[in-house]
Computed example of a mutant assay.
Amino acid sequence: MNRASPDQGMPLSHQHRRQLLRLLLAFTAFFGAIFVVVNFFAERYWLMTIEAALVLLVLLMLPIVQGTYHLRRWCLFYLVSLYAATIYALASPTTSITVFSWVMVMPITAHLLLGRRWGGLFSAFYLAVAGGLFLWRFGTALVVSSPGATANVLAVTAWGYMFSHFYEARRESAERELSQQALTDPLTGLPNRAQLEQAFQRAAGEGALPLSLLMLDLDYFKRINDAHGHATGDAVLRRIAETLREQTRQQDVACRLGGEEFCVLLPRTDVSQARHLAERLRAVIEALRCHHNDAVLALTASIGVACTTTPGEQLDPMLHIADKKLYEAKFGGRNRVVY
C-alpha cells in the first residue's frame, strides 16, 4: 500500500519549504564541518563543540524532514538551533567582526521557512539581539570611526529584511488567490467539488453530525440553452447560485458540481431539517422569474436528500445516495424532493 505524501492537501508552499529546508540542512552541515576544522586549529574549542553539535543535529534532521507532517515545527527547530549557534559566535570574544556578516542573511532564511508573520517576528528578535551584541563587543567607537561601513551593513541588513518580508507577503497573496481559484466555480463563484470535499472532511472530522446533503438539478435546463442560448443559461445558473447563498445558513456549503447540478452540505442537520430546507429551496426556485435580455424564464428543480449519523462517513457514498434520490425525483415527475 502506497503511503500518502506528507504534502498532499497542504498549501502550495509546503513542498517548496520542505525542499528548501533540506537544502539549508545540507548547506549547514557542509559549512558547519568546515567551521569545526577552522575553530579547532584556532583553538576555539567551545565554538568548535557547538558547531559539531549543530552539524550532527542537521544530519539527523535530514531524513526526518523528508517525510514529516509537522514541517513548520522542524523549520522552527532548525532556526532556533542555527540562531543559537550564531548568537554564541557573535558573543564570543575570540571571533572576528566578520562573523556578524551572518546577520544579514538570517532574515531571508526566517521569512522563507516560516512565512511573512512568524519569519518577520523571529528575524526582528534576532536582529535586535545581534545589534545589542555588536555594541556590547565593540561599543560605539567603531560605529563613529567607520560611519560608511556601518551604514552599508545596516542598509544591506534592512534591505534583506524588507525584501524577504515583501516577497513573502506577495507570495502568500498569490498562493491564496490560486488556491481560491482552484476551489471555486468560475461561472457562479460557488465552491466547486474540491472545496466540497474539504468541507465534508472538515465537518466529518469535527463530528458535525447528523450530516445531510442536498443534490439539486434544474429541470429541462437544456431547453433554456437550446431556445435562448448559453449566455441566458449562464445567467440562470448565476441566479440559482445567488438563491442558494440567500437560502442557506452560514455553516452550510452550497456548491456547483457541474452543468445545472448543485449540491448543499448541511452540517448538524437531520433528515427532517434537510427535507424542510429542500422543500423551501424547491418552492423559491419555482417562484423565480429569471430575466435576461428579452427572456423571462420560469424554473423548477428536483432535489435528492441524503443524511448520515455515522462518524467518519465519506463524501462519495453520500453523493451516490443523494444522486439516486435526485433521479427518483426526476422520474417521479420533477419539481419535487425525495429523501
Rank of each mutant, 00 (worst) to 15 (best):
S5L: 13
H320N: 11
G312R: 10
D270Q: 08
F77K: 03
L21E: 04
K330A: 12
Q195I: 01
Y220L: 10
L62T: 04
A33H: 02
T248V: 03
L183M: 15
N293Y: 12
G205A: 02
A155V: 11
M318E: 06
L56V: 14
N335F: 03
T309R: 07
V264G: 00
F41Q: 07
S212R: 05
V65T: 08
S179W: 06
R22I: 12
H14D: 10
I87F: 05
T232K: 09
Y126V: 10
W159L: 13
P267K: 00
K324C: 09
P317R: 06
G229M: 09
L209M: 02
F262N: 03
I303E: 10
A194K: 12
T95D: 00
A199K: 09
V153G: 13
A110D: 04
F77P: 00
E261D: 05
G160M: 13
E51T: 02
G207K: 06
F163Y: 12
L209N: 03
V99C: 00
R238N: 00
L121G: 15
T86I: 11
R171M: 14
L71G: 01
G67H: 13
L326M: 12
S146Q: 14
R249H: 10
R17L: 04
W136S: 07
I50D: 01
R170E: 15
E261Y: 02
S302K: 09
R202Q: 15
L82A: 09
A227W: 05
A283F: 09
A295D: 14
Y339I: 11
L20C: 02
H228C: 15
G139L: 04
A130L: 12
N335Q: 12
R137Y: 02
D217A: 09
A52S: 07
Q180T: 15
A53V: 04
C263H: 01
Q19A: 01
